[in-house]
Amino acid sequence: MDWSAMFRDMLVGNLDMLTDIAKIIFPLLIGIELADELGILDKVSQLFTPVLKYFNLPSEAGLPLIVSQIFGITYGAGVIIRIVDEDKLSTEELMSLGIFLAICHAVIEDTLLFIAIGGRGVIMLGTRILLAISLTYIYSNYLVSDNIKANSGLSQTAVKEGVRSYD
């Protein structure tokens, strides 16, 4: 048991990792804030809105999806935490987003790393994107829609009853 080696590993590894994260988190979140101020983010999110509809997700989900693909889930978490704090997404919408991101994030970087050591990129990237899209589609359209249908059914009855009682 080499305790000094272990603690040296922890310290060096920690410092390196925290420096790397700082290098991405600070420019990223400052950049996002500037892009937000300039109205760029709304335009990029709008590009994704048609795709997000298939997963029953609002346009707010576009930004964490993009950031997580480019910078990874740890870095995308900064954006996601912000959106969660603002209560813009429902529990089901967060889970749809969670399923997609758990399976598919930082795909550009991850795939390039494995291509560099000899893996076949088409298979590695294709499998991940295909699985993320199909699993999120199944969850958001078949596992969640029952609840939503039940709720909207209830509210419609409630409205009808309300109208009747008003009459």
């Binding site: 600070f26 979140l29 804030e33 900064g78």
Partner: peptide, 16 residues
């Protein structure tokens, strides 16, 4: 926006 971004980044960084 720059100040706001820095503040958010700092808080997020501490969180992480």
């Amino acid at each position: 926006a720059l100040k706001r971004g820095f503040k958010k980044a700092f808080i997020t960084y501490l969180d992480l």
